[in-house]
């Protein structure tokens, strides 16, 4: 709050402050709880099954090689089956299930969704912001109405419609419901409203078509907003579990990372948690890493829905 920052500015540096210390204590406790599952995930991904079961080895595990019993069962001598825990966990994660395929699906689906959203939303937003036509208010009203409806809430009728069209268990089913982002339209419209009309008129004078105005004049001005929207969209769909769970039943080729991980959990034999945690780590890492690199942009993007 303002009082302490003002006080801090006035006081000599490094003065001990009871309030500040107390704040740090509270925030550190909070941070420990927040980080706890990340700690468990990373630690288990590095440990051998025995270390996990016996709860030994600390955070990193001892990294001592252990015998892979499955390898022995295949008729190999024990000496040939010694594996390093980290190597074991991650190889299992990638071989027990087609994790690479899941990651690829995740990329295909999130990228397609984002591109279609932009292709649909940009022209609509431009028309709503800068063109005058009959029914414009009605269309904008529909956009505002759409903002009221979370797509997850209408998942069931959407599923029925897609099933009737024979589209369940296809990429199309994963992508179609998200092709329209009323939020994207709304956001872009608000942004385009601030673009001066003169700029558009000048482009028209130069003989540009309305179509190229959108992509050559409007789009470049909207890059920051578009980037924030990209982050918003990619994070939401990379992490989405509910919708893929509904429309992808059994077709492993089409599993997105969250679905694959869930299936992995159902499949593991006994308590083979190491590989499962390794998979979880692989799935979670791309976004976390991107977030740590471009924190400000990510926070901007994710909280986009909060900006007015």
């Amino acid at each position: 709050m303002a009082d302490t920052s003002l006080a801090a500015a006035a006081a000599p540096a490094f003065r001990f402050s009871a309030t500040e210390t107390l704040k740090h204590v509270v925030l550190v406790l909070g941070a420990i709880i927040v980080l706890l599952p990340f700690y468990v995930m990373i630690s288990f991904a590095m440990k051998s099954p025995a270390e996990i079961m016996q709860q030994t080895g600390g955070f990193f595990g001892t990294q001592a090689a252990f015998v892979d019993h499955y390898c022995v069962k295949l008729g190999n001598p024990e000496s040939a089956c010694m594996v390093n825990p980290i190597a074991y966990n991650f190889t299992q994660a990638f071989t027990k299930a087609p994790l690479l395929r899941y990651l690829l699906n995740g990329v295909i689906v999130t990228a397609s969704i984002f591109f279609i959203q932009v292709i649909v939303a940009m022209p609509a937003a431009y028309a709503l912001a800068k063109l005058r036509f009959w029914g414009r208010e009605a269309v904008f009203g529909l956009v505002l109405f759409g903002l009221l409806i979370p797509v997850h809430a209408i998942a069931l009728p959407l599923y029925v419609m897609l099933a009737k069209l024979g589209l369940t268990n296809t990429y199309a089913a994963l992508i179609i419901p998200w092709t329209i982002s009323v939020f994207g339209i709304f956001l872009m419209r608000q942004f385009f409203m601030t673009v001066p009309d003169d700029l558009i008129d000048a482009a028209r004078m130069d003989g540009m078509s309305e179509f190229s105005i959108i992509w050559k004049v409007m789009l470049p001005t909207a890059i920051p907003a578009l980037l924030a929207f990209a982050i918003f969209s990619v994070v939401a769909h990379w992490n989405d579990y509910f919708w893929p769970r509904i429309v992808i039943t059994g077709a492993r080729d089409l599993f997105t990372p969250p679905l694959g991980l869930r299936e992995f959990k159902g499949d593991i034999d006994g308590n083979n948690y190491g590989p499962m945690m390794a998979s979880a780590l692989v799935i979670v890492t791309p976004l976390i890493a991107a977030f740590l690199v471009a924190q400000r942009r990510f926070i901007e993007g994710i909280t986009l829905s909060g900006m007015k």
């Binding site: 709050m1 909070g30 941070a31 992490n239 579990y241 969250p258 959990k265 976004l287 926070i299």
Partner: peptide, 28 residues
């Protein structure tokens, strides 16, 4: 907010769960 720049580190940490796939973290 009151801690100024040092506060940023807590902001980063507290935001991590928002970024991580909930299904993965649920399993953890």
């Amino acid at each position: 907010n009151s801690l100024g720049r040092i506060g940023e580190i807590y902001k980063t940490i507290y935001f991590l769960p928002v970024m991580a796939a909930l299904i993965a973290m649920a399993i953890v």
